[in-house]
Every structure is written in C-alpha cells, then in structure tokens.
C-alpha cells in the first residue's frame, strides 16, 4: 500500500469539496474493495476521504410515492435484513445475501457496492497489461484465461464483468441513484449508471470526480409476488457469479403484465434488454416464451476461449429463474 493522507469528512458537501480539490483523492466508506485494491497497488490514492461519519446517509426510509430510500452508507446486511426490504423488495434482499460473506456484508455500504470494481484477475495483477488499470497497455483477458469474463457488450479494449449481485436487483427494480457534487445534485437512472467499456474501460460508471452517491431510491413496485434470484458460481457460497439472474414478474389472469430481467456476470454492467421484457407482455409464463426472451437478451453474445459455456448457461438460467418467479406462490 502506498502512503496517503486521511481526512474524515463531517458532511457530504465537505467530502465533495475535498474530493473535487484533489484528483488523486478517493472516498472510503466500507473499504472492503478499495483497501484490497490498495494492498495490490491497483488503487493508489494520494488521499482518502472517510465519509463514514457523515450523518443522515445510513438510513432506510419510506418515500411519499410509496417507494423506499436506501442510504448510501447503509450497510449491505442492514439493508438486506431491513423489514421493509424483506417484505416489499425480497428480490433485493436475496441478491444482497447471495453476495460476499456475512462479514463483508456487515462492512460494505450500498453506495460502495455500486462503486466496486471488476474482479478480473488481470485487473488485479499489476504485472500484466490491463486497459482498465492502465489505459493503453492492452487487455490480458482477451487471449488469456477468461472464464469469468463478459459475453455481452465487451470491446476490443476490455472484457471485464461487473461483479455486484445487489446491483442486478437494483437494475431490475428500476432504482434511481441520488448524487451530490460541486455542480449540485442529480438523479441517475440505475441502468444508466454503469457503462460499457468501449475504448475507455477505465471508467466503470458515469459518476464524475467530485460527486458522491447519497442514496438509492426504489420505486413502489417491488415485484414481491413473483420474483427470483439465481446465482451460478464455482462454489455454493462466497464466490462471484458466473451467471446471475434477477427476475421480477407481474401476473394477471395467467398472463405476464410486467417483466424485468437483469443479468449479472455477463457484461460490464447489469444487463437488461427492454425488448425482451416487452416481448413477454401478455404472454403466458411458460418455458417457450422465456426461451424466446432469453434469446433476445443474449442476442449478439460472444464467447471467448474459456467462457463460451456462459451463453448456454445464461439462457438456461434465465428460463429457470423466470419459471421460478412465475411459479412462486406468495
């Protein structure tokens, strides 16, 4: 780990100002990913701004529109086990609890979960080229060992995947992210927050330097009657997803009236295809229709040497998870 200065910010405005003033500064909340990256010399901030002491960012509160606001500093575990999340947004609770370990979920924050970086082995290995870590050096995963890598939305610069489980549920639920910064507050649709690598894979998301996440808003509809989260990985607990599927359905008179399918482990961001969800409207919730939706979601998927299996795996996982959601008797 390199040496750095440390400042505990008393409020969000001070944190944003400190961050804006130093382009080599970074915020620290739970620290579970950032400190790991610093130990590997992948992240080398000159200054850490600790936002844990900022009041008012760790709450979980109901919104006037019937939705729920998740504080950016609320811990993942506290969020997953919150009674309102368990009751109204069980998809989110299940996604959070399928990620990391109990200790990490106690430490990690909701804002930090969104800001976590890829677990691409080459991104972590500073002895290898990586366009995400050092732009212009090349991608070691293309042509290297790429079992955990992307099959959708990748580029010639980067085939890394975004590792979060929580974010798959937030994408499916159409959450919005509240951000503050030197230019004021703004709201970002969840599916717009993370970006595809293109030729700037060093940028994981559209947050500007100087901005910080203050909360995440969930809309009223939590798909609590028909939901499912499926995570497939190399061991049954405490591993990142090879393929993860978050599904929310609304059924009426035996027909699908609303569908959300967000996929993790496939791309540089939680992968949603509105065309597939639209396709399912007014269809019966049977295997054949979910297979057709899966084909739309996976249209254009491309495998590499070690991850081509993910294309078929993802298709089967989508179908299975949608059937599970449709047949849930809540």
């Amino acid at each position: 780990m390199n040496s750095f200065t440390y400042t505990a910010a008393p409020d969000a405005n001070t944190a944003a100002a400190l961050l804006t003033a130093d382009k080599h500064a970074q915020l620290i909340a739970g620290g579970t990913n950032l400190l790991d990256l610093m130990k590997e010399n992948v992240a080398q901030p000159a200054a850490l701004i600790d936002i844990n002491n900022i009041d008012g960012l760790d709450g979980i509160t109901t919104l006037d529109n019937g939705g729920l606001r998740l504080g950016a500093l609320a811990h993942n575990a506290d969020t997953a086990y919150h009674p309102l999340v368990e009751q109204k947004y069980p998809l989110l609770a299940k996604a959070i609890l399928s990620g990391a370990s109990a200790q990490l979920r106690n430490m990690a924050t909701n804002g930090g979960n969104m800001m976590q970086r890829t677990r691409c082995y080459y991104f972590y290995d500073t002895s290898t080229p990586c366009n995400k870590r050092e732009p212009g050096t090349g991608c070691s995963a293309i042509g290297g060992y790429n079992r955990i890598h992307a099959i959708l939305g990748a580029s010639d610069s980067c085939i890394a995947t975004f590792p979060s489980d929580m974010c798959n549920a937030l994408a499916a639920l159409d959450a919005t992210i509240n951000v503050t910064g030197p230019e004021g507050d703004r709201v970002i649709a969840f599916t717009d927050f993370h970006r595809l690598p293109g030729d700037e894979p060093q940028l994981d998301n559209i947050l500007k330097h100087g901005e910080l996440i203050t909360s995440i808003d969930l809309p009223k509809n939590g798909f609590e009657k028909n939901y499912a989260y499926l995570k497939l990985r190399d061991r049954t607990s405490y591993a990142f997803a090879l393929v993860a599927i978050a599904t929310g359905l609304e059924l009426q008179d035996g027909l699908i009236k609303n569908a959300r399918i967000a996929c993790g482990g496939l791309a540089h961001k939680p992968w949603r295809k509105p065309e597939a969800e639209d396709y399912l409207i007014d269809k019966v919730p049977i295997k054949e229709n979910f297979e057709a939706a899966a084909d739309i979601i996976l249209n254009g998927a491309m495998g590499y040497k070690d991850n081509a299996f993910k294309i078929e795996l993802a298709k089967r996982a989508i179908v299975r998870n949608c059937l599970t959601a449709a047949n849930l008797n809540n």
Binding site: N2, S3, Y6, K23, A46, Q202
Partner: peptide, 20 residues
C-alpha cells in the same frame, strides 16, 4: 490520463501523518 482513473502511478508521496 483521465481524472477518474483510480490507479495513479504518478501520485505525489503524501506526508505520512499519524492520527490519534
């Protein structure tokens, strides 16, 4: 290099200051 990049190879060496 974009300012959003977190891996800063040319970061100035910070004064090591201890905190109580």
């Amino acid at each position: 290099m974009d300012e959003n990049i977190t891996a800063v190879k040319d970061a100035p060496v910070a004064e090591p200051k201890s905190h109580p």
